[in-house]
């Protein structure tokens, strides 16, 4: 039996004319897509929540730091007489912050000394 080229073409063409008459969707593929979609949504939501938690932690940490700073520091009213280099004087009033630190302890010897310009006469 000899098969000619045209015969082979006809045989191949008869298979080529077979069309898909099955369902136009595939359950396995759709399941895979939906699962991946779900995972990505979940990941997005988790990232969002992590962001919120980190933001909230930073905010509460900074509030706590500010409160602590306020607690450990003292603000006291202050008024000072400043002698300017040309001999005139000026009065300054306001609030000063006293940080409770040994080096800056207002009760430490020397810290209460009146600052004077050495060039100015007493």
């Amino acid at each position: 039996m000899i098969i000619k080229d045209e015969q082979l073409d006809t045989m191949l063409a008869s298979i080529a004319s077979q069309d898909w008459n099955g369902p136009s969707f595939n359950q396995r593929v759709e399941q895979e897509i939906l699962e991946r979609n779900h995972v990505m949504e979940l990941r997005k939501r988790t990232m969002g929540m992590v962001g919120v938690v980190v933001g909230a932690s930073l905010l509460s940490a900074s509030v706590a730091a500010a409160v602590t700073h306020r607690i450990v520091s003292h603000r006291v009213p202050i008024s000072a007489k400043i002698v300017l280099p040309d001999g005139r004087t000026a009065f300054v009033t306001g609030e000063a912050e006293i940080v409770l630190d040994d080096a800056l302890d207002p009760t430490a010897p020397g810290n209460n000394e009146l600052l004077t310009d050495p060039k100015q006469p007493e």
Binding site: I15, F25, I33
Partner: peptide, 22 residues
């Protein structure tokens, strides 16, 4: 975006399934 792939899959599914059937 998996949803976009879902659209591509719907567009080409019948042609690919047909080829595999052949």
């Amino acid at each position: 975006n998996p949803e976009a792939f879902g659209v591509l899959y719907r567009m080409h599914y019948t042609a690919i399934a047909g080829y595999l059937l052949r």
